[in-house]
């Protein structure tokens, strides 16, 4: 059953990102583990692409422990915005640590700097995991401004963006405003897969 779910998610993401510059994925918290698994499997299966994964949800180290196949992946770089703020000081060559999720400008700089080193002809993708958590650490207005900047900057550089928003009743009005900046919205429901 789980594999069907994950395969279904992978297919939907792949199809959407093929024809859209940016996609927003709204999902219930219960589907979050399946979605990230689908994303990481997709990343691992396309070594010719370049991915930057901004994590505000889990420390990079936890992600790599859970998805061991990523440890050898050369096509993914992490921008970890949570470890340092949580007092986790492990180093990792595949990961750039930002001191705090409030340092939004720094997050933006690191994303662009990583992509600068990627060959022009390589397809580039950015994942923001997640807008919901950025709003928890920041004022919603400033996250909106940050997201505008990111969406516009990545568009000019032909970088595809996938942003995750975990449904949260209290944050819904902010998330709706944010997520609709994307070209395409995917709403994840078990029944849709």
């Amino acid at each position: 059953m789980v594999n069907v779910l994950i395969d279904g998610l992978k297919e939907r993401i792949s199809n959407a990102i093929k024809i859209n510059q940016s996609i927003g994925i709204i999902l219930p918290a219960s589907n979050y583990p399946d979605l990230v698994q689908a994303l990481f499997e997709r990343i691992n299966s396309t070594p010719e692409e370049a991915w930057v994964y901004v994590t505000v949800t889990k420390p990079c180290d936890n992600i790599l422990s859970q998805f061991e196949f990523l440890k050898d992946s050369k096509n993914i770089k992490f921008v970890d915005c949570i470890s340092r703020a949580a007092g986790i000081n492990k180093a990792n060559d595949n990961c750039i640590f930002v001191e705090s999720p409030t340092m939004l400008e720094k997050i933006g700089l690191e994303i662009i700097n990583i992509f600068k080193e990627v060959d022009e002809n390589v397809k580039k993708y950015l994942v923001i995991d997640s807008l919901t958590n950025l709003i928890i650490y920041n004022d919603p207005d400033i996250v909106t401004e940050f997201f505008y900047h990111i969406i516009n900057r990545t568009r000019t550089k032909n970088i595809h963006t996938i942003s995750l928003a975990i449904e949260e009743e209290e944050l819904d009005k902010y998330l709706t405003r944010l997520i609709y900046l994307n070209d395409k919205i995917l709403k994840v429901r078990d029944s849709f897969i």
Partner: peptide, 21 residues
């Protein structure tokens, strides 16, 4: 602007996000 100092790139500048805190 927002300013960043890193061992890799030294001083870098980026537009400062200005929304009310």
């Amino acid at each position: 602007s927002a300013m960043s100092i890193s061992t890799k790139n030294g001083v870098e500048l980026a537009p400062l996000l200005k929304s009310r805190e």
